[in-house]
Amino acid sequence: MGFIATGSTSFYSPFILARVMATMDHLTAGRVGWNIVTSSEDVAAQNYGMEALPPHDERYDRAEEFVQVVKALWDSWEPGAIVMNRETGHYADHTKVHRIDYRGKYHASRGPLNMPAGPQGHPVLCQAGGSPKGRDFAAKHANAIVATNPNVEKMAAYRADIRERAARHGRNPDDVKVLFHAAPIIAETTQEAQAAYHRIFGMDDPLQIEQTLAMTAAVTEIDFFRYDLDAPMPQDLKTNGHQSVLDDFMKRNEGKTLRESLGERLRLGPLLVGTVSEVADQMEDIVARTGGDGFLIRAETGLSHTRRYIDEICSGLAPELRRRGLIRSDYPNPLFKDNLLQF
């Protein structure tokens, strides 16, 4: 199994990030990935001595340089640099270990990395760009893109757009897997599943409302506590945070009340509710209509990361998908990236 850790291009130094990822790639024998984020909250920036984050598009310009430095550091030891001659005591060949001498607008590093890259060379790169600039960055670098779309039409359009952008960057679109957020609600019977759905997304419980407002505020940097829950959703909000998330949230809920919108907000992905077999049908349909590439299961607030939920997915849903031949039944390759790009 692969493990993907999130690291921000706004707060890390490229050298530390390259080194941490390479170390983890060694320790996992080639099963690590980096979820590239640019960060979206000014309060986070203030922990790192900045007044505010750079504007949205500049964050991606910085991220672009950051990724260039990191990749160059991973490539700074040529394959075969380690010769390990026991008799002569010659361990590594210094002519195969190179400085990178990177000097950009935002980042600089001399190099080389003080260790060879791990078994994958470059770990799996994962990204979640939603804005045009973010999508372009993701299409250029990522092996896996995670996307949040509430319905099949948007999912299909998003994937087609990413693949087109990847091709424009000279990449094989099949090397970029688009995985859609999904939070299936699974129960023994259809009725039980629908009852669970209402408990989670009904917005009857004040505590649930508060949690949802807090979570929404954390991502958008908009304090929704100021607005009337049963008045129409505001349509003119601006943020230096996740603007694409905020725009989507407003547009999607035009005409609805904030309370109704919050239910929608909690449900990040498509509606997947029912028995194991019903949910498998719904997922099969989505993949057939979007063209690929899979799902990123994410237990939302209310479901939360309980062992019970994970078991519903792993022991209930996954075996059904496997019986239908829709998901892998084994890992043919030792490296995470090779398995990801296998189909």
Partner: peptide, 28 residues
């Protein structure tokens, strides 16, 4: 966090003998 090149003004001696390099991240 560097590949040394102080002795003999290049990294040969360090890399040859694996002295002070490679070094991976201790927090991992």
């Amino acid at each position: 966090s560097y590949v040394p090149d102080a002795y003999g003004s290049n990294s040969k001696a360090y890399l040859s003998s694996a002295t002070a390099t490679p070094k991976m991240d201790p927090t991992v």
